[in-house]
Nucleic acid binder design. Structure first.
Lengths: 225, 225
DNA sequence: CACCTTTTGACAGTTACTCTCATTTCATGG
DNA sequence: CCATGAAATGAGAGTAACTGTCAAAAGGTG
């Protein structure tokens, strides 16, 4: 998911260096590292994000201006906007949709999509948790408390929804733009996002993995009421 | 729904005058109209909205500034913001959640909620359509094309979701804050919103009522894939 | 008509975000 | 090691969506 809900909980990493071209013939034995340029860019990105998280924790979201963030990250405001299109994106942007898509495709094609999601999300929750539980919590809290952040998060849902459409379409042979495929996908996303909101609203007391499980159970059992 | 998706399609009316207190003992035979003050407020509200729709149709959403809207509606920018908290709200705000809630509660309590929604939404779509088809289309188009509007619309989904939770909770005896109730509701909302998006993206060629039907069919048939 | 309340407009200020341009910083081939 | 080109940065000006304040105007009431 591009950032929202459940995946929101998991991770915050920066994108992989995109496999540096390990030229076998030419270069030295050195693992063909990223150029200094790229390394610096990554550092800047991380610096901005870390500064943002810190400031928000200290003084809240609205009270934290981009100018402050820039100062804390030791860059100019211009640069902040070059790295992140909006303030909300600093908090939310991650690049997990592609990863999630890969993992979903790796599951057996005849497995019900709900079960595929169950496996993949469980793993994501576990990983995100052992790594940076605080970030998961901060994010979901902001999602519940700050309208702008919630909006941006909901926005990202539709991106993830498209991805889900593609996967489902491929499995079922239907079109990714099929009405049923699309509404089905968004129903899943909507439910899972709500599970994350529930988690945050209940002060993260439950185990997110369990909430996801229960949500998927509900979905696969079919709606009642 | 506070504004989003399917309900987006339906209506745009202004809120009912809130049943003027027809004091049977006191006042004159006059139907106890709204005071001049209230009538003026309504007129201003309508003027702002109409001006906004017109300007957006003429020059697009982003190109239309609040200042222009104010001028066209013959009020000051301050007043515009007094009536609508954000620019997106001018386009989106309606007050149909309460109405929808009433109609849902009017359905037999033992009817599956999906069927209740089917009846209520079908009627809403029909009404909204005979009345102001253009507004329905403009809205859904903006929802698909303008990120800010889409965000605001998604935002309103959660409000509608809460309402749905209350209705479902009452019918089933569960708590409105129950995880399953909440995720179930948001799955419904997510699916229906996506149906509206589908409608707009396909240039409103399909019949919205049919799309809603198919979506609800899919939901009640249970997920597959 | 006088008095009080609500609504309005004028205005100043904040902040997110955009654009442009000059400067600096890295990469690369000679 | 340096010259040249490309990319990243910073500075600064500008826009537009809001927010808050205060005084003037309009509506309601005795």
């Amino acid at each position: 998911m591009s950032d929202n809900d459940v995946m929101t909980a998991a991770r915050t990493k920066t994108p992989e260096p995109a496999a540096a071209p390990t030229d076998p013939a030419a270069g030295p034995a050195v693992p063909a590292r990223m150029g200094l340029r790229e390394r610096k860019k990554l550092k800047t990105r991380v610096a901005i994000r870390d500064a943002t998280y810190r400031l928000i924790r200290e003084q809240g979201y609205e009270a934290t201006t981009v100018e402050q963030i820039a100062e804390a990250a030791e860059v100019s405001p211009s640069t902040v906007f070059r790295y992140f299109p909006t303030k909300e994106d600093i908090v939310l942007t991650d690049e997990y949709d592609p990863l999630l898509e890969v993992e979903l495709r790796a599951r057996p094609a005849d497995e019900p999509i709900v079960e595929s999601l169950r496996h993949v999300l469980r793993r994501a929750v576990r990983l995100g948790f052992t790594e940076e539980p605080e970030v998961s919590r901060l994010r979901t809290t902001l999602m519940v408390e700050v309208p702008a952040v919630r909006s941006r998060m909901l926005e990202s849902m539709s991106v993830t929804g498209r991805m889900l459409c593609r996967v489902i379409a491929e499995r079922t042979g239907r079109d990714a733009d099929d009405l049923e495929v699309r509404t089905f996908s968004m129903a899943l996303i909507g439910a899972l996002t709500e599970a994350s909101a529930y988690w945050a609203e209940h002060d993260h007391e439950d185990d997110l993995g369990d909430l996801v499980d229960r949500t998927l159970d509900m979905l696969s059992a079919g709606f009642r009421a």
